[in-house]
Design a protein around this nucleic acid. Structure first.
Lengths: 177, 177
DNA sequence: AATAACTCGGACTTATTGAGTCGGAGTTAG
DNA sequence: CTAACTCCGACTCAATAAGTCCGAGTTATT
């Protein structure tokens, strides 16, 4: 019912949590999943695509996780949706103009010459859409979100993630509460 | 896999056959269907949507058929795809930002204030796409197609349809072949 | 005026795509 | 060396899209 579905939404929201992450730090799929109330497996699946596209880098093993592979300014929304949903076309032309029975089953050369005009228009619309999506980067989005939130929330969020990490990697965790 | 599928393609191609039709004339769903090698029922279904949108007018009964309800210059590709495929959104925001467990199940007011920034960007892209589709009218498309075809094809096409009509309405048809 | 044939109209069935989940391989800390 | 945690590819299920079928209405004919 829509070109871009839940995959794109989850991926973008997850990535926004990765943007303010300090260098060298990483978030696990589990953290990102619990943070959004979805399954860790789903996050892992989405980020597989993101990794193949060179958007995120995966650190395996214990205390591993995901982090951005490029500066947030160089990651556009278009890159993200293409990575997680595949490069979806706005319209797939089946070239039905060639099947017109008016030609008696044998389409003349002029009928199939060049691009179908309908398809051409659709491609133009698709190009406009993609161009609009290519403008916005993860950094832009993160900035807009950060502008909305109270000043102390960023710190609180970081503390939340820190506490979450404390219960994981260190077997001898010292309860910070 | 694509936002607009076969419905849009069939509908547009069928409508292109209606554009050069003389005033008062109509083509039946059967003619349009056989002309493109598809089922008449499918054409009827598509044109039901087109009729509700006020794009075509249906003449019922014997010797009935479909004809354009407006000049081809006033029918945009956007009107057509909206009519046959429904007004599809580029992206359906599920407002997952409100479900962030970081809020403890209760999202603060600032998190849900205004439009989700991701959704906003998607809406902008959708608007660009629709705007591009709204530019092209059926008349434009028909003109481009007509420019490709040989000069005598238009007459031949009309004759083909005429012969097709002859075998239909009149029970006492005189075989032209 | 009655008949008969043809037309459009909406509802159903099937196939394909997307969403979500599960278990396995690999890697790193201890 | 052990152990635990991580990511990764393949599978299952549900929803949507495509296509088809039968019924109601209208018109030209006799």
């Amino acid at each position: 019912m829509a070109l871009y579905g839940s995959n794109a939404e989850y991926a973008l929201h997850c990535l926004l949590f990765l943007v303010p992450l300090p260098e060298g730090e990483a978030l696990t799929a589990r953290d990102l999943a619990e943070c959004q109330g979805i399954s860790p497996s789903l996050v892992a699946k989405l980020f597989t695509g993101l990794q193949k596209a060179g958007i995120v880098a995966a650190q395996e093993g214990a205390r591993g996780g995901f982090s951005l592979a490029k500066p947030a300014e160089e990651i556009s929304m278009l890159d993200v949706v293409d990575a997680v949903e595949g490069r979806k076309r706005l319209f797939d032309c089946k070239e039905i103009r060639a099947k017109c029975l008016l030609f008696g089953g044998c389409a003349p050369e002029w009928a199939t010459r060049g691009l179908c005009d309908i398809n051409a228009a659709m491609i133009a619309a698709e190009r406009a859409m993609r161009s609009e999506l290519a403008k916005r980067t993860l950094a832009d989005l993160a900035g807009k979100v950060a502008a909305k939130m109270p000043a102390d929330f960023a710190a609180e969020s970081a503390r939340w993630l820190e506490r979450r990490a404390a219960t994981r990697g260190r077997p001898h965790a010292m309860g910070g509460a």
